[in-house]
Design a protein around this nucleic acid. Sequence first.
DNA 1: CATATTTTTGAATATTATTCAACTATTTAT
DNA 2: ATAAATAGTTGAATAATATTCAAAAATATG
Lengths: 149, 149
Amino acid sequence: MKDIKSKLLPLLHIGYCTPQIARLAQKIKEPATTIHYNIKRMEEEQEIITYKAVFDYKKIGEGFCAVLLLNLSADEYGDPETVGKDLAKHSEIESVDICTGDWELIIKVRTKDQDAFYTFLRRVITRRGIVRTKTLTSLKQLKTEWVEN
Amino acid sequence: MKDIKSKLLPLLHIGYCTPQIARLAQKIKEPATTIHYNIKRMEEEQEIITYKAVFDYKKIGEGFCAVLLLNLSADEYGDPETVGKDLAKHSEIESVDICTGDWELIIKVRTKDQDAFYTFLRRVITRRGIVRTKTLTSLKQLKTEWVEN
DNA sequence: CATATTTTTGAATATTATTCAACTATTTAT
DNA sequence: ATAAATAGTTGAATAATATTCAAAAATATG
C-alpha cells in the first residue's frame, strides 16, 4: 500500500493538530468566538507552543522506555546545555532536563525494544562529554505527557 | 473579566484538540480523504490516545520542574502500581513510571515555584508506602513532550 | 483464480474555524 | 473623577476544513 502511517506519525508527534474550539465552547459554555479569541492570544504570547498527538507507544512500536541519568565531564566537552541540545535532536528522546546534584542531565528515551535501546546507547550516548550513565528502565508507564494510561 | 484561560488550560492539557487533515494532506501530498481514513483507523486501533496542547510551562505559571525517584516499602502499602496510579491522578504530575533497581517509581512534577513544590511534596509524597524520595530539580528543560524548547 | 476485505479517492455535504464589526468592560492618562 | 484608549466579549456572515458516501483500486483469502 502507501504506508501513510509512518509518514503521519512523526508529524503528529510534534504538531499538525489544532484546538477544537466548538467542543471547548460547549464544554465551558461560552461563545466560540470568545474561546477563539483567548486561544489565539495564548498562541501569540507563546504560552501554547504546539498541538500534538499522544500515542500508545507500545502499539506504534516504541514499547521500550528508559530514563537515563548522565554525568558530564568537567572539561569543555561536558557543557550540559551543549550536550543536552545535541541529544534533544534525536527522535528517540522524549525529554531532556538539565539538573544539579548527582547528575547533570536526565533524558527520557523510547525505542522499539531493548536491542534498539542498546544500539541507541552506543550510537548516541557514547560521546565526548558524557562520562557516566545510569539507566532506569521503565517497566510500565502509568502516566505519560499528562495522560493516564 | 471572565478568566477563560484557566478553564481552557486543563482541557487543552489532556485533549480537546484534533489533527489538521488538510495540512497533513498538503505536507504528505496525498488526498485529504486518505489521510482522514488512516488517522481514523489509528484512533480506532487506539494507537493514538489523544490530541493535546504543549505549553511553555514558565509562561503558564508552572515554572518549577523536578524528577522524583521513589523507594516504596516492601509491605502491602508499597505496591508500585497502586501507589503510582494514585500519584498519577494529581494534576501536578506529568508522568509516572514503574521501574526496577534503585528506585521503584520515577515521577515528573511541575509546580509554580519551589514553595508550591514543597507543599506538593508534603501533601502528596508523604504517604504510606513511600519510604524514601530523591528530588532531582530541573534547572532547564531543553526538550519536553518531544518538543524542543 | 474468484471472492472478500481493506485501502484509496473525488465529489457532495456537514461542521467548524475565522473574520468582522459592534458592543462592553477595564485600564490609563489628564 | 472622568474622558480616552485599550482589551475582551459576542452574534452574524463567511471561509475553510472535516466528514460522509459511493465507487474504484489494491490486497488478502479460501
